[in-house]
Simulated assay, not measured.
Amino acid sequence: MSTERTGTAGADRLVLATRNTGKIVELRHILADASVPLEIIGLEEFPQIGDIAETGLTFAENALIKAHAVARASGLPAIADDSGLCVDVLNGMPGIFSARWSGRHGDDVANLNLLLAQVSDVAQEHRSAHFACAAALALPSGEERVTEGVLRGLIVDTPRGTNGFGYDPIFVPEGESRTAAELSAAEKNAISHRGRAFRTLAPLLAEVIS
């Protein structure tokens, strides 16, 4: 990956390559906590940017594909993440297919219910899983950075909590009795896979966007 500086002086806006308002709010909190003074905007500001095919075979590849596409189309630095739930007894699936596990992209309820059905006969002690996230920064020049984060835990039988999205209501992080959806935003950001990946990326933002 390139480490050359790019001359993006004065850039004060950063595009998060998503229309998911939950992710946008989460990244704003994380960058504010890291004292990175950038305005975070989402793809709702760029209706001309259509769906970007995630053709990579890893979280990092998909994150880079999205970040570069948005940076080129918007002319602004862009961040994209790809994340998912990896269940050990399912050989790491749904993995990169987490958002469309049920066959309908972004149908959180259907995805969650299908996963619960697939592990319904598996004893609790064998339901270990982890959330994985790759966060990618791409500049219009083509420069890039990638960081990763992991959150380990267990899958439970019954969804609990309303603060999260995706598989959060059935995932209990290590050391917790609550699901990720029962944690406050601050609690979740402190330990989440996405929070860890973005916090690691934050100092790199300061390095290449100044």
Rank of each mutant, 00 (worst) to 15 (best):
Ser2Asp: 15
Glu4Cys: 09
Ala11Leu: 10
Asp12Cys: 09
Val15Gln: 03
Leu16Pro: 01
Ala17Tyr: 03
Thr21Ser: 10
Thr21Gln: 11
Val25Leu: 10
Leu27Ala: 03
Ala32Gln: 15
Asp33Gly: 08
Val36Gly: 01
Leu38Lys: 00
Glu39Pro: 02
Glu45Gln: 11
Ile49Gln: 03
Gly50Arg: 06
Asp51Asn: 07
Thr58Trp: 11
Ala60Tyr: 08
Ala67Thr: 11
Ala69Trp: 11
Ser74His: 05
Ala78Leu: 03
Ile79Asp: 10
Asp81Asn: 01
Asp82Ser: 08
Leu90Pro: 04
Gly95Ser: 08
Trp101Asn: 04
Val109Asn: 02
Asn111Cys: 14
Leu112Lys: 08
Asn113Pro: 02
Leu115Gly: 04
Ser120Cys: 01
Asp121Asn: 06
Ala123Gly: 02
Glu125His: 10
Glu125Val: 14
Ala129Tyr: 12
Ala129Gln: 11
Ala129Lys: 10
Ala132Met: 10
Ala134Asp: 08
Ala134Tyr: 08
Ala135Cys: 13
Pro140Met: 05
Ser141Lys: 00
Glu143Lys: 01
Glu148Lys: 00
Val150Tyr: 13
Val156Pro: 10
Thr158Phe: 09
Gly161Met: 04
Phe171Val: 09
Phe171Glu: 11
Glu174Cys: 04
Ser177Thr: 15
Ala181Glu: 06
Ala185Met: 02
Ala190Met: 06
Ser192Ala: 05
Gly195Asp: 08
Leu201Arg: 02
Pro203Arg: 02
Ala206Glu: 14
Ile209Trp: 06
